[in-house]
C-alpha cells in the first residue's frame, strides 16, 4: 500500500510492514541488553544467532554490521543500536555510517547546525 511518507528521502518509517519483517531481528538485538547474552554472542556469534529466526540476509547484515541494511530488513534503530553498544559505538558513529560520512564529519555537521530535511545523505 502507498503511504504518505514513502517519498521522504533516506528515512525508514518503522511501520507494521517493517515490524513484521524485523521482529526476530529486533528481539535478537534487544536480547543483548543482558550481560549473559552479550557474553554468549561474543563467544560464538554463529551459535548465538542460531537461537534466533533470522533470514540469511538479516544474519549477514548483523555479521557485517551493515546498519543501513539492518534498517531495510526491518530493524528499528533503538533495537539495532543495542548491537552497536556491544561494539562500543556511539549514535554518531552509527549515524555517520548510515549517511556515508565519517564520524568526525558527522560531528562537525551537527555542530554546524545539522542536516537539512531535504538531504538524502552524504555531506550536507
Amino acid at each position: 500500500m502507498n503511504r504518505d511518507y514513502d517519498d521522504i528521502p533516506g528515512t525508514y518509517v518503522f511501520d507494521g510492514e517493517h515490524s513484521r519483517k524485523g521482529y526476530a531481528l529486533n528481539m535478537f538485538c534487544l536480547s543483548l541488553n543482558q550481560a549473559a547474552n552479550r557474553e554468549a554472542f561474543a563467544a560464538d556469534p554463529d551459535a548465538y544467532l542460531d537461537r534466533w529466526d533470522l533470514t540469511p540476509d538479516q544474519r549477514r547484515a548483523v555479521r557485517e554490521r551493515n546498519w543501513l541494511e539492518l534498517l531495510r530488513l526491518g530493524g528499528n534503530i533503538y533495537y539495532t543500536f543495542k548491537l552497536a553498544i556491544v561494539d562500543g559505538l556511539t549514535m554518531q558513529d552509527v549515524g555517520a555510517a548510515m549517511s556515508g560520512i565519517t564520524t568526525e564529519e558527522f560531528s562537525a555537521m551537527m555542530i554546524a547546525g545539522g542536516r537539512p530535511p531535504t538531504s538524502s545523505g552524504g555531506r550536507p
Binding site: 521522504i8 528521502p9 533516506g10 528515512t11 525508514y12 543501513l68 534498517l71 534503530i77 533503538y78 543500536f81 549514535m91 552509527v94 549515524g95 555517520a96 548510515m98 549517511s99 556515508g100 558527522f106 555537521m109 551537527m110 547546525g113 545539522g114 542536516r115 537539512p116 530535511p117 538531504s119 538524502s120 545523505g121 552524504g122 550536507p124
Partner: peptide
C-alpha cells in the same frame, strides 16, 4: 525536537520547524 537517528538522513535538524 527535530532529530533523526536512522537512515541516510541521520543528523537532520530543522530549527525553523
Amino acid at each position: 525536537m527535530s532529530h533523526q537517528l536512522q537512515g541516510e538522513r541521520a543528523g537532520l535538524v530543522n530549527l525553523p520547524f
